[in-house]
Design a binder for these strands. Structure first.
Lengths: 136, 136
DNA sequence: AAGTTTACTTGCAAAATACAAGTAAATATC
DNA sequence: GATATTTACTTGTATTTTGCAAGTAAACTT
């Protein structure tokens, strides 16, 4: 085995930020499904616990992947949106989607989406970026 | 938020297979560092516990990402190698590496590697594939 | 003014992980 | 040929993380 140092390994760096069962699902909710509010994430389907959700949102914000702002149109809630750093996870998400669509016999991803991933990926990713205005 | 069904979500499918702290690090050891044996993974640097490692190798094999074969040159050990399904995680790993190299101020990834990722990705990935002979 | 929505927090049980020690077969060494 | 070492684990227990249920507080609706 090669004599690679494990400190500063980029895979480890990433996993320390979103390498758990829930963080990447929350990023999926925000980036791909357009989720904005706490209840969106709670109701996303996988059944995350409310305490875990609160903890993960805090971590994601602390790591600069998302920002939390008071919703001025309804001050009971906050709007969660991705930062540039968060948005740039989309290409990785796309690779994961392509892999899963290939190997999940019950995949819900439609063929036209996979086709676009293969032939028109840049535009697809750009369309997702365009939905958000970048914030620090 | 869009009315997407969470069943059959490709991100969830993937996370159910390698969405924990260790599985993707093991795949990194195999795919990128050329690790083959139990002790390679134990000594990879992050300090995985031996019981957890045994459990994850079993899961990865059960999900068809790796195969385990007796090493005929030294029958005390087994050779772990990636399947086609496992190898095809490389593109996702590359996206994660690119993301981490950009956002980790202490990244250990050399600039020439990032440059190659951007300008010559296909060949880089192919070189990794070529190191393994495909097995079911 | 009372009820509802929204985003959490808190307490406790259950599950997963980490740590330390032990086992067994194959190989190397004396 | 006996003894030590390597290799890949298993087992037991403490610690940490997660899951579940209930509760809180501020903003908004009725």
């Amino acid at each position: 085995m090669e004599d690679t140092r494990s400190t500063n390994c980029p895979i480890l760096f990433a996993l320390d930020i979103f390498g758990d069962k829930w963080s990447l699902l929350i990023m999926r909710d925000i980036l791909i499904r357009g989720g904005k509010y706490y209840k969106d994430f709670l109701g996303a389907g996988e059944g995350i616990s409310t305490n875990i959700l609160a903890n993960r949102l805090e971590q994601l914000e602390r790591h600069g992947l998302i920002v939390k702002q008071l919703d001025e149109t309804n001050k009971r809630r906050f709007v969660y949106s991705p930062t540039q750093k968060g948005m740039e996870l989309v290409p990785a998400l796309m690779e994961i989607i392509e892999w899963s669509a290939k190997y999940d016999p019950d995949t819900g991803t439609p063929p036209w989406y996979i086709e676009r991933l293969k032939t028109d990926r840049e535009a697809l990713i750009q369309e997702i970026y365009d939905q958000f205005q970048t914030r620090e």
